[in-house]
Write a protein that binds this DNA or RNA. Structure first.
Lengths: 328, 328
DNA sequence: CTGTTAGCGCGTTCAA
DNA sequence: TTGAACGCGCTAACAG
């Protein structure tokens, strides 16, 4: 690998000059620039990022922490982040935290040793304080922590949940249950709240219609089986995420309940899996890709010290009507 | 951030000595070591990887190139790679190539600038020659290129396809079709070959039973719709991957063909999506996680200049019987 | 406009 | 067993 020194010799100039044309910093005579460029081409020189990083303290590398890339919500997010980063000349390091606060902190430490420029935390369980201590630019994605100083992007969980529930009502459902997500997660709370906003005042509502879940399919299947056994007159289910909605669908299929005629189901997320089940899942879709891309853009701005016009983005969600609800 | 110099001052020794205890290289008096360790702790010093990399030419970072992390086969692979890398103190950079040879090459160049230690290429379209030119350790995963000098891990595609087809036969299927993968991919060829090995000599076989596909669901649905219309007596389908198998299942559902009674389906891969459809997909499962983990281990060995006992691993596949085939 | 030189933080001879 | 000093490749003053 040729170095900047080789180039400077071949071009008959100093390394500083080469550095200048490389970084478009400072003045360089046109003629000189041409010579340098020619030398660069001839040696097929490419600057060494590590050396540059050492003096710069900038690596053009960011970290993306997800709970588990295997969880169907995150690949699309990761894709979006990577796409944008790539576009701006950044490289992205992937980390799985398994929802463990410890692993997450530890990972960030490792990344800091490597002079990482910034971090995107998807679905973190960290507190705002802990995040501040990192000392590197951070954007938080999805399951937000509560803070008005940390840049964040989410979707309109509560409003989306309301809309989904209203939709079920409009479909003619007269007893709607909710499979809620894990208690520690803010977004699970918000979605549950949205559901309650709509149904709490109805004459048929009672707390037994809200069932605890963990965002996973298997558990949701079992829970739904039990739920439908106890309350056979339930004719609508709003699930806190798509995986649980699919779990509910599975339960209905096991019980031979016809979907969507006897039971309508609406999920939340808009992951691809909703399209492979049959009937296909009606869902309140988050703009997953957009969320990732936006977070990436925000982070880049922070890294490059540009001002953020908004610190907190709450993106719109959109109902996608498919087979698990009736056409109206 | 404290530097090695700060530590050396506090401990009253030279930076060389600190370096020695840090890397367990050379002799250090026990007493001296204690002093150094104490200073390190006191300053909560942690070595700067970038500086270390510059003199080392080693970054403890590897690149993982996948066609698209959004494709359900790859998250599990990525997870495995990341887990192992993490375990050995490496960090992994994720890249999506979109199957483009150009993007892939370009990405590797970027990574080389960053002194990446090695690369795992999942499903590459590069030739052996091109890979050699990289000049960094490489392990190729999944859709192998043909070369006996590049370390590689795959699964027993041909044998697995045979077994899957035989299984369908044993189920009593009397006319089995095959949805094959893209022509450029070696593994698609191998799986198709395996299918042919079994059925070519039967009296019912004819080339019309092999249908071209692209490993995607939508196209497989359409293809299957057409296929079943043309040959209504098909009672078994072996798909080149799970997504196409799910597409076939969807086609059957649309046509109201009862699965598995009238039509049995077997996929290939063992991705999680096979478990969310109903009936659940019978599939010839690859040990995806193991493949990723193995590739990661191989790469680490190469990086650390340890000898590889085997250059080419072909892991066993395993039939997972689920709902799209009858119980025998 | 251009060159010299001092860091960036750490590893590694080479002497002592 | 320890320390001084140079090199890794590049950026950024500071002089000219």
């Amino acid at each position: 690998m040729a170095t900047i020194r080789d180039v400077s010799k071949l071009a008959g100039v100093s390394v500083a000059t080469v550095s200048r044309v490389l970084n478009r910093s400072g003045y360089v005579h046109e003629e000189t620039e041409r010579k340098v460029l020619r030398a660069i081409k001839e040696l097929s020189y490419t600057p060494n990022f590590v050396a540059r990083s050492l003096s710069n303290k900038k690596t053009s590398t960011i970290g993306l922490m997800v709970p588990d890339i295997t969880n169907p919500f995150f690949p699309e997010l990761a894709r979006a982040v990577e796409d944008v980063m790539q576009l701006y000349g950044y490289t992205t390091i992937l980390g799985n935290s398994d929802e463990s606060v410890e692993k997450e902190k530890q990972y960030v430490e490792v990344l800091k040793q490597r002079y990482i420029d910034g971090v995107i935390l998807a679905s973190t369980a960290l507190t705002a304080d802990e995040v501040h201590k990192f000392g590197v630019p951070v954007v938080v994605l999805d399951r937000a922590l509560t803070s008005d100083t940390i840049p964040m992007v989410t979707s309109k969980n509560r409003e989306g949940a309301r809309e989904a529930t209203r939709f079920l009502l409009a479909q003619g459902c007269r007893k709607i249950a909710h499979l809620r997500g894990p208690a520690q997660l803010l977004n699970a709370d918000e979605r549950c709240q949205g559901y309650l906003d709509i149904v709490e005042q109805t004459d048929w509502f009672h707390p037994g219609l809200v069932v605890a879940g963990n965002y996973e399919m298997k558990q949701a299947t079992d829970a739904t089986l039990a739920l439908l056994k106890k309350y056979p007159d339930i004719d609508g289910i709003f699930a806190g995420n798509d995986m649980m909605a699919i779990g509910a669908l599975r339960a209905a299929q096991i019980l031979g309940i016809s979907i969507p005629d006897k039971l309508a189901i609406v999920g939340y997320d808009g992951i691809t899996m909703g399209e492979v089940v049959y009937p296909e899942l009606t869902t309140m879709a988050q703009p997953i890709y957009d969320m990732g891309a936006l977070a990436a853009r925000m982070l880049i701005k922070m890294i490059e010290k540009q001002p953020l016009d908004t610190l907190y983005y709450e993106l719109d969600v959109q109902l996608i009507e498919r087979g698990t609800t009736r056409k109206v």
